[in-house]
Every structure is written in C-alpha cells, then in structure tokens.
C-alpha cells in the first residue's frame, strides 16, 4: 500500500504569532523532501504535525491509501510512519536491542528480528557495535542507530528532524549516503527538516523553504 500525506490549509499559532499560515502540500512521492528555513521558522512544528505528533490549530493533516481513501488515525497508521528526533532517544540497552525495538513491539519472530536488525546494522555500518551499550555511542553513531531503528520497521514515511545536528563531517557524509540508499530502495517517503543548506542540496529531491508560515519551492540550481 502506498501512502500519501495531505496537508490541508493548516495554521499553527504560538504566542499570538502564526508559525504556519494556511499551509497546504501533498507528499506523494517516494523521494526525499527537504524542508529548509532558519531557526524558529516552524520546521520542527510542521514536521511534527505531519507525523501526527502535534495537531494544527486550524486545517487538517491526513493520510490517504492507494485507493485515495482517508486512513483513520490509529495504531495501524502510526506504525507506517516514524520520526527521528535531533537528539536520538536512546533506550538503556544494547545497539541491537535499540534497533530491534520496533520489531519486538510488532510481535515479530526472533529469527526474523535478528535477520532484519543485522541487515540494517550492516547498512548503517554499525554491525561491529551491535552488542555495545547504546548510551556509549558517539553522537554520529547514535544518529545512524536512530536511522537504523526507523528504517528496520520499513515505514512508508520517515521524518528526520535535523539529521546532521550534533554530527561531525564524517558522520554527516555517512548519514547522507544512508538516506540516498534508503531512497533507492523506493519503500519510503523521506521528509527532512534542516537548516544545513549544503546537506539539503546533496540529498533533497524536492527542496521546500518555510518562509512566513508558507511552504515555497526552493531551487538551488
């Protein structure tokens, strides 16, 4: 099933100031969308609203299935979308157990969990760290682990908030390669919020700029 995300005329107001104004957009491609904008422009708020972690003050956000029918907001939908926070929430467990979390709560069999986690850890270059206490990872490794944990559940939508925050140049490069490879797999729509112009230009298929509460198409060319 292919999901589409519909953002329809949303408003979000903080302290009397509209952060998002009558914003509409359709995310319907298995590509990488990058939302840019300076700090405080509302990127994170927009991303969280899209991921159903926050609600808009006006307007609506919903997902359509391949028959263009609206999907109810229940656990079945939540399990198709995932969100990677700038400061990766690390469970007090091994790297393996962190990545396996989403599969365990879905009740998958141990054999399948092991096989999928190992494949994803290999994909993000963390196989050698799988038994390590995840809290001892560097910030770059933690970010890669966060991405591995998100993609192992094979979501249709992956939201990444500032994926290069707290990450060095080397790990930024690795994160970029991982995201491009996820896109190549063609299973997920990736929506990234970042203020890193260089990173956005390297990974983004569709670059959008959040300005004065509106989403504008950005062209780097």
């Amino acid at each position: 099933m292919t999901l589409e995300l519909i953002v329809s005329k949303i408003w979000k107001i903080y302290n009397g100031r509209p952060i998002l104004r009558d914003l509409s957009f359709v995310f319907d491609k298995k590509e990488i969308y990058v939302i840019m904008g300076p700090n405080g422009s509302g990127k994170t708020t927009f991303l969280k609203i899209c991921a159903l972690l926050e609600t808009p003050d006006k307007g609506e956000v919903f997902y359509l299935n391949s028959d263009k029918k609206r999907i109810p907001e229940d656990i079945n939908l939540f399990r198709k979308i995932t969100y990677v926070f700038p400061e990766v929430g690390i469970f007090n467990a091994s790297v393996f157990d962190n990545v396996a979390y989403g599969l365990k709560i879905r009740g998958l069999k141990k054999k399948e969990i092991v096989s999928r986690v190992e494949e994803v850890l290999d994909f993000v270059g963390l196989t050698h760290k799988k038994k390590q206490d995840a809290l001892t990872l560097s910030s770059g490794e933690a970010k890669r682990m966060g991405i591995a944990r998100a993609i192992v559940i094979e979501p249709e939508f992956i939201f990444l908030d500032e994926p290069t925050a707290f990450v060095d140049m080397e790990n930024t490069e690795i994160v970029k390669k991982i995201l491009l490879q996820i896109k190549e797999r063609g299973k997920s729509t990736i929506i990234i919020a970042t203020h890193d112009t260089h990173f956005a230009s390297k990974v983004g298929d569709i670059i959008l700029k959040l300005e004065n509460g509106k989403l504008l198409t950005e062209n780097f060319a």
Binding site: A51, L53, I75, F78, R79, I81, T82, Y83, V84, F85, E87, V88, G89, F91, N92, Y101, G102, I105, R106, R149, A150, I153
Partner: peptide, 26 residues
Amino acid sequence: VDPIIKLTAKTLGATPFQVALTIIKE
C-alpha cells in the same frame, strides 16, 4: 525518564501500553 524516550517509543509504533512498559523498563 527523558521525555524523548516516550516520544521515540511512540514514533516506533508502540501502543500506549507498550510505551508505558518501555518507560518502566528505562
């Protein structure tokens, strides 16, 4: 327990009960 743990569990598809168990485990 860091509130990000609760949000992370939720965004990985945990039900409210699974989120609670995760927090207790943390």
